[in-house]
Design a protein around this nucleic acid. Structure first.
Lengths: 206, 206
DNA sequence: CCGTCATGGCTAACAGCGTTAGCTGAATTG
DNA sequence: CAATTCAGCTAACGCTGTTAGCCATGACGG
């Protein structure tokens, strides 16, 4: 569990009195989401990286193939990012941002519905499996992410759980576990996953 | 989702009439578990690989460092395994075997207890996080694994769910999700994970 | 208008990765 | 004793992320 390269962060929040101190309204865009986070060229690079990742998987997302796709040479990428990890961080931020948006949309379509949130989560993850795994199968680079993004991604589910953090975490674990096992093909081929989803959601939210 | 290197397998079993056609007794060692699966030297190599992985993580598990630890040169490893993936497959098999054993032990200690199974699962995974991730975050190399091992690892939970496959899958997803998120430090630092585990297990098995 | 400087490309190179080819000495076997 | 297999070795290839250092372009201040 000692992987060295890690982030510890998670700034304060006064420790939370398990009761709902959760904002009741959705769509407060938590952080202003600085648009000058990246230069225009850097955004192009991230876009190309994302195409590459989603099309062909992480093994193909290489500084050289990435540069190729942009018509430049690999070392030039280092004029825009300090290292490969930094462009991966941007991809992780995109995934967080988009899945938060997907959850917020589901919430405003069907307020309070856990099923709607779960469906949105599953749909987004399965539509972007490589991106989902990239963002999910390593420690969160919290200190490098836009402020508030992690919380924003978590809030819709917490709201649907009426502020019950334990239930929200258990539900998140269930949905993440289903998606993760599904993406990696760990269920038997003939497994009825829709039924497993329904079963899990029904027992978690009776 | 097209990762090329994959295994499709999952040999037959006549499709299962959702009802418990599950063996009622534990500890039937499903497959004879051929001890000549590997030569003695190959087993030494796998043991060294495992030490390396568990001590220092996947980035350090390199053909060269592995050879170093054995006092030989990297190319010599290819006299014993066709490639690196083949030694990883052995590590995956070890993880499956050991976690199956841990679940079977918990089952025979406290028959029918989901809590006991979940605790055994969580304890094993957190004791071997790198191994757990290695075995879990890629498609199962089913065709290369000892026959019956995957099923054996799944059976205790299926028994505790009285043969209800949907419930067993939902529960597996929950436990895997909790462990995965915990290993990668995705929960807030101050999160009470014991409470989340209890909450999830209680609602899944009232 | 001209010098200065930042920007964003480039080539060459390094260390480390998985892996292959081909050699060699020791042990086993017919 | 000859032949063969085993298990090590060195050298090398193509790939990876990354660094150093060079050069053209364009913006800007005096």
């Amino acid at each position: 569990m000692t992987d060295a390269t890690d982030e510890t962060g998670r700034t304060g929040k006064p420790a939370a009195r398990t009761a709902p101190d959760v904002p009741a309204v959705a769509h407060v865009p938590a952080a202003p989401f600085a648009p000058d986070r990246l230069t225009a060229r850097a955004r192009e690079i991230v876009a190309a990286a994302r195409d590459l990742l989603e099309e062909s998987g992480p093994a193909v997302l290489t500084m050289r193939t990435l540069a190729d796709r942009l018509g430049i040479k690999a070392p030039s990428l280092y004029k825009h990012f300090p290292d490969k990890h930094a462009v991966e961080v941007e991809l992780i931020a995109q995934m967080l941002e988009e899945s938060a948006a997907a959850l917020e949309a589901a919430e405003s379509r069907t307020p309070g519905s856990l099923e709607a949130l779960a469906e949105a989560y599953r749909t987004y993850a399965l539509a972007h499996p490589h991106l989902y795994c990239l963002a999910t199968e390593r420690p969160l680079p919290r200190t490098l992410l836009p402020a508030g993004l992690e919380d924003r991604a978590a809030l819709p589910l917490l709201r649907a759980c009426a502020g019950d953090r334990d239930l929200a975490r258990a539900t998140w674990a269930f949905t993440h576990g289903m998606v993760s096992l599904e993406i990696h093909g760990r269920f038997p081929e003939d497994a009825d996953l829709d039924a497993a989803w329904k079963r899990g959601l029904r027992t978690l939210h009776p």
